[in-house]
Every structure is written in C-alpha cells, then in structure tokens.
Design a protein around this nucleic acid. Structure first.
Lengths: 249, 249
DNA sequence: ATCACAAGATTGGTAAGACCAATTATTTGA
DNA sequence: TCAAATAATTGGTCTTACCAATCTTGTGAT
C-alpha cells in the first residue's frame, strides 16, 4: 500500500502527517474547502495513532490551514495571515528595541504600496482614501476617532496597491504598532499646530496619489513619517519635561 | 476583548493551555531557555488531559516557541521567524498570481533596507557586500554560483541595514522567490550582454551605498529590479518562442 | 406525498492508562 | 575516585473509552 519510496519513507510519524498535508496542498490535490478524511480513518491510513495525528492537525489549525467543525469534519482553509500578528507579538516580546525596527518595515511596505497605488488605484480606491482624509480632518479634536482615521487612511493606501502580499504584511505590522503608538498619538493630537502639519502631510500624500506620481508620493510619505517621528519625539520630550519620571505601565 | 483578570476561567481547555504560555511568556515569567513543567504535571496543574496539552504544545513547537528534548524536558525557545518561510509557502500555494506580488514585497523591504544601510553600514558590512560583488563578477559563467552570489549580494545589503525585522522578512521572501526564479536566472545568465548590464547595475548599487546616498541607492536598486524584470521577461519570451506551447503536467 | 421531528450514525473533543525511548540522576563496584 | 550499571524522569506514541456537536435517516402526522 504505502511502499512509496520517497516521502512516506521511514519518517518520524509526526513528519509523515505533516508531509501528507504539505504535499497534497502544494500539489493542489487538497484545495480550499475540501474535506479531509475523518481522523480515525486518516490515522489508520497514515499508520499513526489518533492523538499524534491530532497533534499535527491542531498545529495546522492554529496556523490557519485547517478549519475544523465538530461533528462535520475537517476542511482545508484559506491560510489567513492574521496569525502572523500573534506570531509577531510573541517574537517581539522576546526582543527589546524592535519597535523602531518594525516601524522601518512598515515604512518599507507602505512606501512600496503607495508606488503601486499610483499605478493601480481606481476611482473607488481614491474615493476611499479621500474619504478617510476627510474623516481625519473632521475628527481633529477626537484622539480616538482621529487616530482611527489616520490608521484607515494609511490602510486604504496600502489596499489601493492591490497587492495581497503587501496588504497582509502591512496588516500584521499595523496591528502590532497600534498597541504602542496609541498613547503617543493621543498625546500628539492635543497640539493644534502639530495637527495642522500632519493634516497637510496627509493631504499632500493623497494628492500625489491622485496625480499618479510614484516618486513624489514615496518622497512625501517618507517625509510624513520623518515629520511624524520628529513631532512625536518632541511632544514626548515636552511631556516628560512637564512631568518627569512618569511611569508608564 | 474579554480580558477577564483571572484568565484561567472556564475556557475551552485548549485555550487555557494557550493562555498559560501566552501570558507567562508575554509577562516575562517564562524566558528563553527556561524549562517548563513536565507534561504530566502541567496537565494536572491546568486540569486538562495530557493529549490535549500535547496538542497545544506541539503547535507551539511547530511555531518555534518551544524546544523539546526527549528525556530532558521542554524549554522556551527564541522564536525564529524562519517558520514564516514555510507559512508563506503554504499561503502562496493557495493563490495564483502572488509571485509578482511577493516580488513587490521583497522590493519594498530591500529598498528600505538599502536606505538604512547607507546610514548604518560599517566597514565590515561594506566589505562583505563588495566581496559578493566580486564573487558575482568572478562567476559570470557559472549560473549556479553566480545566482548564489547574486542572492548573497542582496542579502548582505539587507543585513547591513542592521534591522532584524527587515532581515527576517526578507529572508522569508527570498527563500520563497528562490524556488521559482532559479530557472529564469539560469536562463538569463546564458546571455553575456545581459550579464554585463546586471553586473553594472550591481556595481552602481554598491557604489551608492559606499557614497552613503540613500535616495540614489534606492533609485538604482529600483532600476535594477526593473531592468532585471524586463530582461527576464524578454529572455522568457525568447525561450517560449523557440519551444511554444510546452505542456507541463 | 410532504414536511417535521426524533433516533441513530458519523465525527471531532477530551481523558485515562499503558508502554517505549531517550535522557538524566543515582547507585554500585573496581 | 571514577566509571559503568541501574533506576528514575520525561517526552513519544498507541489504544480504548466516552462525551458533544453535527449530519443522516427513518417515521409519523398532516
């Protein structure tokens, strides 16, 4: 039966199960939505015990490759990159000064995305970006809503690149940065002058996209990041100068 | 959302185990290298069966958060982003035209990295990049070694950014692109004129880094990608013109 | 004949016990 | 004192059993 000399060789049992799914999925024999064999049957087929099979399947479920419905069966799922967010969270908890680092990665993604957006954005995309820009202006006094509009503005730009890879990578990072930047953003938004500069920067970025000028859009976005960084830093200094040695949980 | 203070509430059992590790790791109570409780003991402590506990732990092992040594115990491991490579592989197998997409992401990372490299590269970094450029020139006739030198050249640039996030993301993508681009590279390297253009492009990129000019480096790298893309496309057309309608099973 | 509801079958969820294999700790003998 | 043998610890895996959710099917009322 299983005299397949290559893959089903004398593997670790656990590896055999992984190989089973890996090969079938990569070969396209198992497509999204397909149902896999019942656990007991599959365990017998692969010559492993059900607990071991379940260990591996549980891993694949956590990675988002399988979708399991009790009583019904287990199905191939469309891999969702949202799990990357959790993964990054874990990774970053083990490192110190990676926040700046991730910010760099985010900038990388977004600057590339805005170039693509200049080429591929349609009216609907532009409308959405413009809409969030409007919301941003309308919510200048509300740190919460304003921050959200800010985030959605950038998100819309990335979405307008129509690149799944960029969008998903960006999403994973954005959520991560969200946590640590909310407070700063709240602080920043209290200064009306800073708000004006930021709004102008956003508007210019938006106009560059409308003008379909990738280089200009890239440059303006980069400037925007640099300015935002500087402003945040200055605002932070001011905060600490007013209330030194403030403990943040 | 439902951050109940006593997270060991009446959860899914499976979730209870995940929470156990998640909280302790994020809180720093479990640090890299620490040993976790024996399975049987931990299972009893969390009031779950050993198989269920093992399912979750297996998942964490596959994600690289745990390192297990039979007979010795289970230890907290430094999360390795290399697993992202496998993850991407799975993801991409479920999508059609994502290759171009991932190429965009790679370009994004590398262009940002080269900007940082212009600021942060030290003599050692520059030497390494230059060394691979030399290797690249020395192995013009060897598609295998030449391709490797090409890859290492770009890798060195990203490494010179001294950004862990960028480096790991780049690594995940590079390995992925490696598979599908090896053939094209082999094809490309047969044309001496193309080789000359590529070598010049690499040299210019390198010189921009040495000159510490981020904008120029970014632009030249972008041009390099565009040219490489164009050349590959042309070379591909030529290939298919010679042998049209080749069926691949 | 059709539909609703209930009983049974299928399938995942979890637990318990047992045994094997690798490692580590302990004991014992030279 | 040291090294080999032995025991204890710990992960690796299988088997069995039972519970819970879902699906299938059969039966009875309309």
């Amino acid at each position: 039966m299983n005299e397949c000399p290559e893959s089903d060789a004398q593997q670790n049992g656990s590896d055999r199960v992984v190989s089973y799914f890996k090969e079938r999925i990569l070969k396209g024999e198992l497509k999204v939505g397909d149902r896999v064999m019942p656990e007991r049957e599959l365990a017998q087929h692969l010559d492993v015990g059900r607990p071991l099979l379940r260990e591996v399947m549980k891993s694949l479920v956590m990675l988002g490759f399988l979708n399991v419905r009790q009583g019904s069966g287990t199905y191939i799922a469309k891999a969702d990159i949202r799990v990357l967010s959790d993964f990054f969270t874990f990774c970053l908890s083990q490192e110190q000064d990676v926040l700046e680092d991730v910010m760099q990665a985010r900038m990388a993604i977004e600057c590339q995305a805005i170039r693509l957006a200049c080429e591929r954005a349609n009216e609907s995309d532009l409308a959405r970006i413009g809409q969030w820009l409007g919301t941003l202006i309308d919510t200048l006094t509300d740190p919460e809503a304003g921050g959200r509009a800010d985030f959605m503005f950038h998100q819309s730009i990335v979405a307008a690149s129509h690149s799944r890879a960029l969008t998903t990578l960006y999403g994973a990072m954005a959520e991560l940065l969200h946590r640590s930047h909310v407070q700063r953003r709240a602080t920043t938004y209290r200064n009306p002058e800073i708000v004006r500069v930021l709004v102008d920067a956003h508007r210019e970025v938006f106009l560059s996209i409308v003008a379909k000028d990738p280089d200009q859009a890239d440059r303006r976005l980069r400037d925007h990041f640099a300015i935002g960084d500087e402003l945040r830093r200055r605002s932070l200094i001011e905060t600490y100068r007013g209330a030194p040695a403030k403990q943040t949980n």
